[in-house]
């Protein structure tokens, strides 16, 4: 795959701009998965995925082939999605700041309660929304894209041991979130 990517890149850089579409088609779902997992909004995720490809095209000449093209693209996608999430969050915080200057809590789409009768997978999806964007990004890279810790380390800029520790903590956090929500919901439901 890498050899094929490199030949496409060479072709694009030599002026065959349309060949870039091959790379877009090959990696579009991968980029979209990361963007969607981090941003949790389809439109925003598509926008950022497109921007990632445009950015990658613009910087294509700087890709030296030291790493896989996919790793390079993952890196752009991961950081762009997190950066976009922070921008959106900051804008949302400004919109909800009252005249007093005190920030009011933003009603998040992730406040849907988890219920015991629900499918475990649905509960997990809801719990995932409670994670920080970089944590969701890590989940996407490790579980959805099935990347090795070493590759995730290159993408995120974290050390390998830090990636492992973070993944461990995220699993614990998810389990805790799912347990807490179910207990809370159960308590509410049993109130007289």
């Amino acid at each position: 795959m890498q050899a094929d990517d490199l030949s496409v890149i060479k072709s694009v850089l030599s002026g065959q701009r349309n060949d870039y579409k091959k790379l877009v088609v090959r990696y579009q779902d991968m980029v979209m998965s990361i963007a969607m997992r981090v941003l949790q909004q389809r439109e925003e995720a598509e926008d950022i995925a497109q921007l990632c490809f445009l950015k990658a095209y613009e910087k294509l000449a700087t890709f030296k082939g030291d790493s896989l093209f996919s790793t390079w693209l993952y890196r752009i996608s991961y950081h762009a999605a997190i950066s976009r999430y922070r921008q959106l969050n900051a804008a949302k915080a400004i919109r909800t700041t009252g005249l007093s200057g005190k920030e009011t809590l933003v009603a998040d789409e992730s406040t849907e309660p988890l219920t015991e009768g629900e499918d475990d997978f649905k509960q997990l999806e809801k719990a995932l929304k409670k994670l920080d964007p970089d944590e969701r990004g890590l989940i996407s890279l490790f579980y959805t894209q099935e990347l090795a810790v070493a590759e995730i380390s290159k993408i995120t800029g974290l050390s390998e041991s830090n990636v492992k520790v973070k993944l461990f903590r995220i699993r614990k956090k998810l389990a805790q979130l799912m347990k807490e929500k179910i207990v809370n919901q159960h308590t509410i439901n049993t109130l007289p």
């Binding site: 579409k21 877009v24 088609v25 579009q28 779902d29 991968m30 979209m32 998965s33 963007a35 969607m36 997992r37 995720a45 598509e46 995925a49 497109q50 997978f121 997990l124 999806e125 995932l128 989940i139 996407s140 579980y143 959805t144 894209q145």
Partner: peptide, 12 residues
């Protein structure tokens, strides 16, 4: 089991 996202057909 978390599924991969798919882009719109005309994304590319």
């Amino acid at each position: 089991k978390v599924p991969k996202e798919k882009v719109a057909p005309d994304f590319a």
